[in-house]
Nucleic acid binder design. Structure first.
Lengths: 105, 105
DNA sequence: GGCGTTGTTCGATGAATATCGAATGACCGT
DNA sequence: ACGGTCATTCGATATTCATCGAACAACGCC
């Protein structure tokens, strides 16, 4: 865990990188889950992978500018980055509308 | 070259696979060029890679359901698949609107 | 039939990716 | 300060990927 997580400046985020981040089923599920509700804790995605693997995917999403990570005591809160909509208007909405992974909790 | 190119059934095309195909800058450029005009010959994309590499990318785009390949004598004509719009409405339009690669000829 | 043009396929290679378990570090209670 | 929870990092591995050059195949044309 980190005190402060590094987040890329939105203007440096490339479209191809965002698409790559979304091209993994698990990462797409995570983003869909965030878009369907509020921010949530790191561990509340019931991802079928080891913690170290989930950490890797979270890092990819963070570096692609899709999500933020924030410390809350011993927890880590994950949330969608609102500025993404300014950078790539309509992208996330379109992709998630077409995504079959309407995962719940 | 092939007499008949294999094209996947559109209903079997997965969103994640399409996103992955679009997540490479060169492939994104190729799709953008096709969307900006008509179908065009294989060799008319002035891609900065070896023919064998271009062939690889063309195969990825074909297998992801994005383009068709058609024989025309000794040439190969590449075109966007119109059914993609039925399968994933708005996706290609949204992505290409945001793509900086408005490449010409 | 032979030749040039046009893509594809076949290794080969180096880089990136997904995955895991184990070790580590940060924080909060007690 | 100690132990527990939570997430990251590290090393290892297996897979995939982008790239190239060389060899090959299909076609049209002479």
């Amino acid at each position: 865990m980190q005190e402060h997580y590094p987040h890329p400046e939105m203007k440096t985020v490339q479209l191809a990188e965002v698409l790559h981040a979304l091209s993994d089923p698990l990462r797409l599920r995570i983003v869909a889950a965030l878009a369907a509700g509020e921010e949530r804790g790191w561990g509340e995605f019931d991802a079928p992978v080891a913690p170290s693997t989930l950490s890797h995917h979270m890092k990819v999403l963070r570096q692609a500018g899709l999500v933020t990570h924030r410390r809350d005591g011993t927890r880590c809160i994950v949330a969608l980055r609102p500025e993404l909509e300014e950078r790539f208007p309509g992208l996330l909405g379109t992709v998630l509308r077409l995504a079959p992974e309407k995962m719940g909790a």
